[in-house]
């Protein structure tokens, strides 16, 4: 039983991280219609920027606050000068453009911070260890498990109870109609992409105390969040939550039972969902 509990915690802590990444990806897709390949690179950028801020101020919390905000500036520039031009283009161009941005960001970060491994400490407040099921368990992981639903809840309220949130939802359903009723759609697009960037970078900053920083750290998470977004339903907020949990738990329990098959599990799941319910488990909408 203990063992089961630990595995659930392990799966949840990864799943919640995945959720933060996937919810940004799915919101951007829902509104802008672009599946952003560079989303994982924004995750990576968030981690590096958090580390950089920590080197100046020696505070993880400041890093968590300022790092993602710096990434947002880059995100806004990307949207305003690059993405904007491909909204009406074929999906292959959209993917290739964001893939090019991925290449630039990954290699650019390597040029700035080098290819060596960097390590970020968790904040003192969360650096402790608890005993769960007779085994040590890091408090930071529990923090990750909590922060996911908290941010998710804030986002959900934002989309449902604020004017801007409702406008974004309207734009995601029908941008022509939204434009017709006087909503500044280009501005909405920029804001949504900024929000997506912020979520990705926040995820990166949150992941930094757990995993070593390397320019390629976004690669694993971007493919997994693609899978989450597709199985959850492209553009679906609850879908991203359920999908991320599913993938996180499958990951942790897969290490126990799946053996050689483990590597293929996410892809089997992806193909199965696409074949049975091509639009994902949940309907589009936040």
């Amino acid at each position: 039983m203990d063992f089961l509990l630990l595995n659930i915690l392990n799966g949840l802590s990864w799943g919640m991280l995945l959720f933060l990444i996937a919810v940004g990806l799915t919101t951007v897709f829902g509104v802008l219609g672009v599946l952003n390949f560079a989303h994982g690179s924004l995750f990576m950028l968030g981690a590096y920027l958090c580390m950089q801020v920590m080197q100046y101020f020696d505070s993880f919390w400041l890093g968590l606050l300022l790092g993602p905000l710096c990434a947002v500036i880059i995100g806004v520039l990307v949207e305003k000068y690059l993405l904007k031009r491909v909204y009406n283009r074929d999906v292959s161009f959209q993917l290739l453009l964001t893939f090019a941005i991925l290449l630039i960001l990954d290699d650019g970060v390597r040029m700035i911070w080098g290819s060596g491994y960097h390590v970020v400490d968790p904040p003192e407040l969360l650096a402790g260890i608890m005993t769960i099921a007779g085994q040590d368990y890091p408090v930071y992981r529990l923090f990750l498990i909590v922060i996911g639903p908290v941010i998710g809840g804030i986002l959900w309220s934002f989309f449902h109870f604020t004017k801007w949130g409702k406008i974004i939802r309207a734009a995601s359903f029908d941008n022509i109609m939204a434009e017709g009723v006087g909503i500044n759609v280009p501005l909405i697009y920029t804001l949504v992409f900024a929000l997506g960037t912020w979520l990705a970078a926040l995820g990166g900053a949150l992941a930094a105390p757990q995993q070593s920083l390397v320019p390629s750290m976004g690669e694993k998470i971007i493919i997994e969040s693609f899978i989450v977004v597709v199985i959850g339903g492209m553009g679906s907020f609850p879908g991203a939550f359920v999908g991320a949990l599913l993938l996180g738990l499958l990951g942790s329990f897969g290490t126990m039972f799946a053996g050689q098959l483990q590597m293929a599990i996410p892809y089997l799941l992806l193909a199965a969902v696409l074949l049975i319910k091509p639009n994902g488990l949940f309907k589009k909408g936040v």
Partner: peptide
Amino acid sequence: SPFKTTDFSSYITK
């Protein structure tokens, strides 16, 4: 663990 693993917690538990 797959080469791209960044979260080893479930392996450690195992």
